[in-house]
Design a protein around this nucleic acid. Structure first.
Lengths: 241, 241
DNA sequence: TGAACTGAGTAAACGGCGTTCACTACCGCT
DNA sequence: AGCGGTAGTGAACGCCGTTTACTCAGTTCA
């Protein structure tokens, strides 16, 4: 009847518990404290047992990254559901604000996922590393683009950059298809690509600097500054009015 | 005669060697490989001896950060000397390009200094953490501002943000005086502050994403994209033409 | 000059870490 | 009933940071 055996059920359950405790340790004490022995201790088993689930500590941390990204994407998508159907500007704002709020509320997770060279955490191919959080935003922004917001993004990219942008257009199109997201042609045009990059650079820059507290001086009213960044972004891209 | 004793000379020399080997390990194998025992091994001494120089491994890594920042600041200042005296736009570009090139050429150093929450590496006061790299740019941008480029920065900040910017103006002014940099009044006006923040957000965003390879897809011609970012920045702030 | 002092470096030890390996015991299948 | 695979164990290895008691050469000063 049940094609899932007792053993399989137990395995999945244990795996889940491992990740939960790993997450708890990360949040409470930071990356360094996410130790195989500490996790095992909390689970009431011995450390070598964890090697039945992960190849190494590093492998486990990689999985933890994936979990975190999934959660983030879920949270953003959930917030997105509460926004009017065709208010693309508001949808975009919701994603941006949601990302900032998440990062500020989960600094340790943010650091683990967003602030380490992709080569060291990912495999050698370089592909899955980009997946890490690139996917988070493609997952969110993809539907947005395919819904029609793209029609507005038809300016912004300097004409002398068009040639350089071409390979990036293909890369973006490829990334969308890999994620199984159907998008109209304009969504991978030079203006859309340029918009996406500028958008991500500014959002990431602000959020990372705020989380790491690496502004050249202590910034007051960072929230207002972020709002200003958002409106400026929409003006630059022709999404306003 | 010589007020510096042999012992003192030896101490300074050993300290220098420690940091050199620490740096080498960081560059070659990453932060995790910078262990007290590894450094001691390379120096031909035992690990506990290093406690004569640093309180802990963490303390040593903090010092390493300071060294790295100093080097970066030196490099930027050196590049700046080769730029015409009153070409402020070119000076700004030089600093930005220099920062990007340095980061791409020193990914491990960049990661150590720029990609960890300030609270964990710095002391509790929060002050020295800002110093870390804020100082690098204040040291470079301070002279630039005091030389007169500020006269151009008199637009940009939305008027409804002026009130929020006020405490930041004071913070910037304080940061300048701490660094011993004299700047004219306009250099800490709302427009200057807003300009500085926008500038740092975009530069840092692009560079960090490029170093960490965290763009949502593999970006081709990142150098051209960066150049575009620079020109756009000058346009936004009225430095063009 | 020689005695007292200071501080760089050592050796041994502690507990914690990731990882490997030989092993047990039990679940699921035939 | 018996067999194979697999979750988990326990001991061990070689790392690590850090502490402690110690040696002994360089410095200072009577």
């Amino acid at each position: 009847m049940s094609e899932i055996t007792r053993r399989e059920r137990m395995r999945v359950e244990t795996d889940l518990e491992i990740r939960q405790h790993a997450r708890r340790l990360l949040v409470a004490e930071g990356r360094e404290a996410v130790t195989l022995r500490a996790i095992a201790r909390e689970l009431g088993i011995t450390a070598p047992a964890l090697y039945r689930y992960y190849d190494s500590r590093e492998d486990m941390l990689r999985q933890l990254c994936v979990d975190i990204c999934d959660d983030l994407a879920d949270e953003l998508n959930r917030a997105l559901e509460e926004v009017g159907e065709d208010d693309y500007r508001e949808k975009l704002f919701t994603v941006c604000r949601g990302f900032r709020r998440w990062a500020l509320g989960h600094p340790r997770e943010f650091t683990l996922v967003f602030a380490s060279p992709a080569d060291e955490t990912g495999t050698d191919t370089g592909e899955p590393a980009q997946d890490q959080l690139g996917s988070v935003f493609l997952r969110v922004i993809g539907p947005l683009m395919s819904e029609g917001a793209t029609q507005v993004v038809n300016e912004g990219a300097p004409s002398d950059l068009h040639n350089d942008l071409a390979p990036n257009q293909e890369a973006l199109a490829a990334a969308f298809t890999i994620k199984g997201i159907e998008v109209p042609e304009e969504a991978t045009g030079p203006h859309a690509v340029y918009f996406l990059l500028r958008w991500w650079i500014r959002i990431y820059g602000h959020v990372a600097l705020e989380v790491f507290r690496r502004f050249p001086f202590d910034v007051a009213h960072a929230d207002r500054l972020f709002e200003s960044l958002l409106t400026e972004l929409t003006q630059d891209v022709g999404l306003d009015g």
